[in-house]
Amino acid sequence: MSVARILVIAGSDSGGGAGIQADMRAVTLLGGHAMTAITAITAQNTLGVQGVHPVPTDMVLAQMESCIGDIGVDAVKIGMIGSAATAAAVAQRLARLDGVPIVFDPVMVATSGSALADADTVAAFEQLMGLATLVTPNLPELAALGGEGIAARHATHVLAKGGHGEGAMLVDRLLGPDGLVTEWRDPRIDTPHTHGTGCTLASAIATGLGQGMMLPQAIARARLFVRAALVCAPGLGGGHGPMGAPLDFARHA
């Protein structure tokens, strides 16, 4: 089987824990080929985001066209989008793809608490959710986007990530237009090194979909991958450090 071609549209994390860097790591370790359209450059580390420089919309589109026109795309992952104008332009371009699964991680706030999307950009998420095969908000993001009803409103699936919930068990719920599809429950992994969990999960799911997996199967494998990455976190930095790279995961998945 040819390698799955995964186009990642997201921002860059200079500290290597989240964003494009985490996306490429996940796609590669799961056997896919990662291509990128970088939407923003950030000065960022485990303590927070010190600066954000959005990439102009026409350059984001140019990166996308370079990948789509030559290499082709089996799945798309969208993360930090940079601006409302870029969100609208990306949505228009992706609408022309035929049958390509799209995983949208509606990034609003970094693990450190730093804002990564303004109100206009969040409002523009509506267009991207309308195209997505799966939207992967955490609980605060889900509330900001309108709650569980976004699955029915956009005729899509939503993975409501439970990391911000309380209790010893972490619960992730897959919602479809008609309500709950399935859920996963696991004990929480006690670590401060959670930077990049959302990026990694969404890219891992997109890789599975690009490889031909059904949605629940792709989510299940991606969750196991993230848990393995949390366990092997190297403990870098003075804040929310990056996860590790479970190098042998693909051989045992």
Rank of each mutant, 00 (worst) to 15 (best):
R5E: 14
I6L: 03
V8A: 11
D13Y: 01
G17L: 11
D23F: 01
M24K: 12
A26H: 09
G32R: 07
H33A: 15
A34H: 09
M35V: 07
A40I: 15
N45V: 04
G51P: 07
V52H: 02
V52Q: 03
H53R: 14
V55P: 14
E65Q: 13
I68N: 01
I71L: 15
V73A: 04
K77W: 06
G79A: 07
M80K: 02
T86G: 08
A89I: 13
A91Y: 03
L94F: 08
L94W: 07
D105G: 00
P106H: 09
P106I: 13
P106M: 11
P106K: 11
M108Q: 15
G113H: 10
T121N: 15
A123P: 00
L128G: 06
L131E: 12
N138E: 12
P140N: 05
E141C: 05
E141T: 08
A143W: 05
L145N: 09
E148W: 05
H157S: 13
G163Y: 00
L170K: 03
V171N: 01
G179E: 06
V181G: 05
W184S: 06
D186W: 08
P187R: 07
T191A: 04
H195K: 01
G196E: 08
G198T: 03
T200A: 02
T200L: 04
L201M: 14
A202S: 14
G208Y: 00
L215V: 06
I219M: 03
R221N: 00
L224P: 00
A228W: 05
L230E: 11
C232A: 12
A233Q: 14
H240F: 15
A245C: 10
